[in-house]
Structures are given as structure tokens and as C-alpha cells.
């Protein structure tokens, strides 16, 4: 591994895109930064700009009004990039999907209908330790792509 690749893998920068939903997954993701779970000791930093990110974390069901914004953010992140989907609503629509023939009209679809996803983290909501485990798998994938 060259120097560039080693530095990318050892300190990945994460962009967090909250796409609606009930906020349960959002507070568990922000709790990863607090003193008990402290991901900054592993070299991870949260940025606000997609141009500076390596990993995109998406949580929440994606409503129809927000699909365009999510696609634009995905296209602005430079390669190589990894997408992580967190929580039941992001994987399959969760409890808002409806049953039988009926699909709720406010749903833009689970995340993998809109952008390609690499790692899936199930849970409702998943514990912060489970999210850290998911991000560790994402870093493994980033190593292969670099």
C-alpha cells in the first residue's frame, strides 16, 4: 500500500445524511461521538461537506421529496467511496412499507433503489457498538477499492 492509500484507510472522514425517519437511528449515530463510545480515537471525523468525505452514512426512510438531494450528494463525493445504510427503514422501508399490495405513498423507496449500497446494518435502532462494527466492515471495503 502506498502512503496515500495507507493514510486514507487509517483516518476515514464520514458524512452523515439524515433522510427523514423517526430520529432513533440519528441519535444513536451521534451517540458514537460521545465520551463512552468515542470513535475519534479510531481516527474517524465527521465533516459537513461531501467533497471531503470517504464514507457516506445514510439513515432513515427516504421520502419522495428528498431523493433528488440525496442523489446530488452521492454524485459530489469523490471516488473511492463507500455507502453504509443504517436501520430497518433504510434497508427495506421497515414498518412504514405497508402490507400486501399497499405501499405508503410518502416513501421514495429503500436506499438501494436510489444509490448503490455497500454495507447494511440491521437493527431498530442498532446499538452504537453495532454501528461501529458496520463502519469497521466499511473500512475493509475501502481498503479493497483504493
Amino acid at each position: 500500500m502506498g502512503l496515500k492509500a495507507w493514510s486514507r484507510v487509517k483516518s476515514p472522514w464520514i458524512m452523515f445524511a439524515p433522510c427523514g425517519g423517526c430520529n432513533g437511528c440519528h441519535i444513536e449515530i451521534v451517540a458514537c461521538l460521545t465520551p463512552r463510545y468515542d470513535v475519534e480515537r479510531l481516527g474517524i471525523k465527521i465533516t459537513g461537506s461531501p467533497r471531503q468525505a470517504d464514507i457516506l452514512v445514510v439513515a432513515g426512510h427516504v421520502s419522495k421529496q428528498i431523493t433528488k438531494a440525496l442523489k446530488r450528494i452521492y454524485e459530489q463525493i469523490p471516488d473511492p467511496k463507500v455507502v453504509v445504510a443504517v436501520g430497518s427503514c433504510a434497508l427495506t422501508g421497515g414498518v412504514f412499507y405497508g402490507e400486501g399490495d399497499y405501499v405508503s405513498y410518502g416513501l421514495g423507496g429503500p436506499v438501494n433503489k436510489i444509490i448503490p449500497v455497500d454495507v447494511y446494518v440491521p437493527g431498530c435502532p442498532p446499538k452504537p457498538e453495532a454501528i461501529i462494527h458496520g463502519i469497521a466492515l466499511a473500512i475493509q471495503k475501502l481498503k479493497e477499492k483504493v
Binding site: 434497508l91 455497500d118 454495507v119 447494511y120 440491521p122 442498532p126 457498538e129 466492515l137
Partner: peptide
């Protein structure tokens, strides 16, 4: 058990 992350749904 809570470590359930996968690459393939």
C-alpha cells in the same frame, strides 16, 4: 447478539 452487519442483504 447485535453484530449483524452484512455486505449482501
Amino acid at each position: 447478539k447485535f453484530e449483524l452487519a452484512v455486505y449482501d442483504l
